[in-house]
């Protein structure tokens, strides 16, 4: 490995391209941790937001008016406000409220990373509910009726028939939203979550290599989103069913 790091040092000395994240072990660790934090945020939020979407789309068919109303306002709130404001709302608003009401003093009950995960998952989840709902609505009522006539309960029909079909219909829209989610994780910067953008800004204020770090960031996000898109497309192809959907 050492010769790689040496090469980057040589690159800096000959061209001025200062990639401290390679040859400087402190920066290298900072950046790797940041990258892993972004990865962690992305993966956890993807899973949680998809779960919120699946459960939300199911609850939207609920017979209870209250449930449908709560869901409606949840979606309105998270869709019609900026995600950065939501993040502040959770971290500074709800977070300090919790602190003062539980009297824990300055000791935060919920870490900034957790708030970022909660906030971003709810944000992307609101869109996922809408995405899955349109998928669920595109499943013919008659298919559901056939399931019912065979004795499937509503929950079982949803899990085994409606959801798998709705998923296939929703995948393109879901792809877009998840790509957006990965890019939105950069907002966690604002509440000092040490993700990739945050550590990069620390590095460039120490090393004064702003343009280089900017390019590093672009390449990293491009790669990260590229992998996500690739995986989603592979999945889309794998679950494609002949004669269903386009």
């Amino acid at each position: 490995m050492q010769f790689i790091w040496d090469w980057f040092r040589w690159l800096y000395q000959t061209t001025g391209i200062n990639l401290t994240i390679f040859y400087d072990s402190f920066d290298r660790h900072r950046f790797t941790d940041g990258f892993l934090m972004t990865l962690k945020l992305s993966l956890i939020c993807i899973v949680l937001s998809v779960l919120i979407g699946v459960v939300g789309a199911w609850l939207q068919g609920s017979k209870l008016r209250v449930t449908r109303h709560v869901l409606h306002w949840y979606i309105q709130f998270f869709r019609n406000t900026p995600p950065l404001v939501q993040l502040y709302f959770f971290y500074f608003g709800v977070g300090s409220l919790l602190r003062s009401s539980l009297g824990t003093g300055n000791q935060p009950l919920v870490s900034n990373v957790t708030w970022a995960i909660i906030s971003l998952s709810f944000f992307a989840g609101a869109f996922n509910v809408e995405i899955f709902r349109s998928g669920v609505e595109a499943v013919p009522k008659t298919t559901l009726e056939a399931a019912e006539s065979l004795g499937f309960s509503r929950l079982r029909a949803y899990a085994l028939i409606v959801l798998p079909l709705a998923f296939r219909i929703s995948l393109p829209a879901l792809n877009n939203n998840l790509v957006n989610l990965v890019k939105t994780t950069t907002l966690a910067y604002a509440i000092a979550v040490p993700e990739m953008l945050y550590v990069s800004s620390q590095i460039w204020s120490d090393e004064l290599n702003v343009p280089v770090m900017m390019n590093v960031l672009l390449v990293c996000y491009f790669g990260l989103v590229g992998v996500l898109v690739y995986v989603m497309h592979r999945w889309e192809r794998a679950i494609k069913v002949p004669g269903f959907g386009a």
């Binding site: 013919p140 056939a146 028939i161 079909l165 296939r168 069913v241």
Partner: peptide
Amino acid sequence: REVSIVFQQYNLFPH
């Protein structure tokens, strides 16, 4: 379990 219906549009599960 006693009575089963078949529809005009078949309504098979496409997946």
